[in-house]
Design a protein around this nucleic acid. Structure first.
Lengths: 111, 111
DNA sequence: TACGTTTATCGTATTTATACGATAAATCAT
DNA sequence: ATGATTTATCGTATAAATACGATAAACGTA
């Protein structure tokens, strides 16, 4: 690999992408989780229906309950949402703290 | 599905996620492309090596040339990078316009 | 205790993503 | 033209994601 760029058609960097280690892993995980149209829709639904239960989400999607439960798990483990047990059901909300963290990271590394 | 939330443990929405249609599709595509550690590394490398060619990127990764070429295609089609033919090689840069668009979208819908 | 309700998990089928070697395409230099 | 260099694409093998039905787990209620 050469140290000098092979061409000069590129503008100076528009962003730093200054992140690494565990933070980068976490960021990639969040990117991956939202890189799916179903999961993006679920997140959108939770904005207008905070505190809804799994069944409510299942009813809005053309998917089996087991599949939706898996998607919710991915979103939970990535930190986009959090679920609180409420009797036999599970109440889902956006994870405001992590969403804010993600936004700040994007602003910083792509700003 | 019930119209009233089944629990009340959730704070008011921390974001709007106000996006839909083609813009949402594009956003999901960009999320998906960066939801892979190799592609994230490639993007980071391009910050410090603007205008490098495919071979330079291949040399920094423990992957075959064909594989890297595929990853570059994903990043290109998602709009994160752009490649300009320069002789027999291909000079890669960050796509500043699209990166800025992504950042603005995140700030808006998650702000 | 037994039953209805709700959700997660298991096992599995299918699709998609990832990876590689081999080859083709494009360009430059000889 | 021939050969060297660089990259993309093809074919294919393997790994991971996605989907489903069936079942188990947890809870409230009769």
């Amino acid at each position: 690999m050469t140290d000098t760029p092979s061409c000069s058609h590129c503008a100076p960097p528009c962003c730093s992408l200054d992140v690494s280690g565990a933070e980068q892993e976490r960021l990639v995980m969040m990117f991956k989780a939202l890189g799916n149209p179903i999961r993006f829709e679920i997140l959108k639904f939770l904005v207008t229906h905070p505190g809804c239960i799994t069944g409510d989400i299942v009813d809005t999607l053309p998917l089996a309950q087991a599949t939706v439960s898996q998607h919710l798990k991915v979103l939970r483990e990535a930190g986009w949402i959090s679920g609180i047990t409420e009797g036999p059901a599970r109440c889902y909300c956006l994870n405001a703290e992590n969403i804010a963290w993600f936004r700040e990271q994007i602003v910083q590394i792509m700003g």
